[in-house]
Every structure is written in structure tokens, then in C-alpha cells.
């Protein structure tokens, strides 16, 4: 009983110091100069632009990776036209971005598509710039967040098995109908959970985007790189304003995560 009380107390202490205190700090820090300070920080032209860039990246990345993540998961679990070896290999490769430092992820894109590379020059000649522009930032974020959806959906597909889908086919349903009526209701909460995680990760992506974007004010700056720049410029209150917005989003996402996780378990 004594031990039990000790462990619970320790847990409370660790969680408070490590998680709750920082949260508290960010919510109070933003008001250090009053509401006007916070609003000024937020309503700067570069803040608004940065938030817009972040929102744009989050939307594009989430849509693309949800689509491709779900498709790839289905192929890796169900496809009969892939040999087991290819499936196993692909399954391991999917995880690689988790092991890659975001900075390195950004570096890869610069090395492949930067202005000094063959591909980059070719694209540049037709007027498409990837690095130091939105496409590169999207690409970097896609790379970093790719495994999330696959990792959420694949286990569920494996768990439900293909019997229900086969049953649907013997009842005359073709794959598209089967997918929406049979497979989708089983995986939708896993997909939603994946979406929330992808949003969270792409919202907070920093290293890869910083490298690829060049962090140009009012052009390629995102919310996280703006926080970085404000801190470097000792503009702490401004940084805190943006950080608060990001943190508020994170907490919303955290609540969503909880909710979808619970729904995921019910089914």
C-alpha cells in the first residue's frame, strides 16, 4: 500500500513537472505584455502569412498521405499480386522516415532537387522551383509523415481479415462497393486517428521545413520556423504568441486523439 501511494505520487510529480508545467507556462507567457502584446504578435504580417503557410501544408499533406497511406496499406495487406518478400520489404521501408532526422529529410530533398542539382535545374528552366518554395516544404512534410497512416491502418486491416470482404464478393459486390460498405466502416476510426496524428506532425514539423524552405519571411516561413526566428531575434513575447496558437491546436488534437482512440477500441 505504501509503495502504491509512493508510485502514484511520483507519477503525479513527473507528469506535472514535465508536461503540465510547460503547458501552463505557454498559456501564461503569451500574456506577459497583456492582450495587446499577444494580438500584436499574432497580427503581424509575417505571423498571418506563416500561419497560412502552415495551414496550407497541413491540408495538402494530410489529404495526400491519407489517400496514399490507405491505398498502400490495402496493397501491403491484401494484394495477391505482390510476393510476400516484396510485402515484407516494403513494410520495413515504410518505417524508415521515422528513423530519419527531420533535418536529414530536408537535406535529402535539397540534395535531389536543389537549385544546384540536375533535376532542380531542369525544373527551374520550366519555371518550377521546389526548394525554397512551397512544393519542397510539402514534399519534406510528406516524407516525414508518410509512415503514420500506414502504421495505423495496416494492423486493423490485418486484424479484421479478408473474410468479410470475401463474403461481400460472393454476394455479388465488386471491390469499390465492398471497400465503402465493408472495409471502410471497419477502418474509419483508424484512418481518423491517422489523420489526427498526421495533422499534428505536419503542423509541428520544423527541421525538414526549415532546411527546405530557407525560412524566408512572408514567403516560405511557417508557424514553427517563425517561432524559431523570433527566439533568435530575442522577440520572446512574439514567439510566445505563435507558440500559444500552435499549442492550443496541439491540445485540440490531443483531445481528438483521445476521442478517436476510444472509438477505435469500441469497434
Amino acid at each position: 500500500m505504501m509503495m502504491r501511494r509512493l508510485w502514484i505520487t511520483l507519477t503525479y510529480i513527473v507528469v506535472s513537472l514535465l508536461l503540465l508545467l510547460p503547458l501552463y507556462k505557454i498559456f501564461t507567457g503569451a500574456w506577459a505584455d497583456g492582450l495587446s502584446g499577444f494580438m500584436d504578435a499574432l497580427l503581424r504580417a509575417q505571423s498571418l502569412h506563416a500561419l497560412k503557410m502552415t495551414a496550407l501544408i497541413v491540408i495538402i499533406v494530410t489529404v495526400i498521405n491519407t489517400l496514399f497511406g490507405v491505398m498502400l496499406s490495402i496493397y501491403l495487406v491484401r494484394a495477391t499480386w505482390l510476393s510476400p518478400l516484396v510485402k515484407r520489404l516494403s513494410n520495413s521501408i515504410v518505417d524508415l522516415p521515422f528513423a530519419v532526422s527531420p533535418v536529414i529529410g530536408g537535406l535529402m530533398i535539397v540534395l535531389l532537387l536543389g537549385p544546384n542539382t540536375v533535376l532542380g535545374t531542369m525544373l527551374g528552366n520550366v519555371g518550377v522551383s521546389i526548394v525554397y518554395a512551397l512544393p519542397g516544404m510539402v514534399l519534406a512534410t510528406l516524407f516525414v509523415t508518410f509512415p503514420i497512416m500506414v502504421r495505423e491502418v495496416m494492423p486493423v486491416l490485418q486484424e479484421i481479415g479478408d473474410q468479410q470482404e470475401q463474403a461481400a464478393s460472393t454476394l455479388g459486390a465488386y471491390s469499390w462497393y465492398t471497400f465503402w460498405k465493408v472495409t471502410w466502416p471497419n477502418i474509419r476510426f483508424a484512418v481518423m486517428y491517422g489523420v489526427v496524428l498526421t495533422v499534428a506532425r505536419s503542423l509541428g514539423e520544423f527541421g525538414a521545413v526549415l532546411v527546405v524552405s530557407g525560412n524566408i519571411i512572408n514567403k516560405t516561413q511557417t508557424a514553427t520556423t517563425l517561432v524559431y526566428q523570433d527566439v533568435e531575434n530575442f522577440n520572446v513575447v512574439a514567439a510566445n504568441g505563435i507558440a500559444l496558437v500552435l499549442a492550443a491546436f496541439s491540445i485540440m488534437l490531443l483531445l481528438l486523439m483521445e476521442w478517436t482512440k476510444k472509438r477505435k477500441e469500441v469497434h
Binding site: 508536461l19 505557454i26 514553427t224 500552435l246 496541439s250
Partner: peptide, 13 residues
């Protein structure tokens, strides 16, 4: 539920 906070919070933040 708060355990996952570091996954949700941007690292720069």
C-alpha cells in the same frame, strides 16, 4: 491522455 502531449506539440514549441 496528457502523456501524448509531446507527440502533439511542435518540437520547436
Amino acid at each position: 491522455s496528457v502523456i501524448d502531449l509531446p507527440f502533439a506539440l511542435p518540437t520547436a514549441v
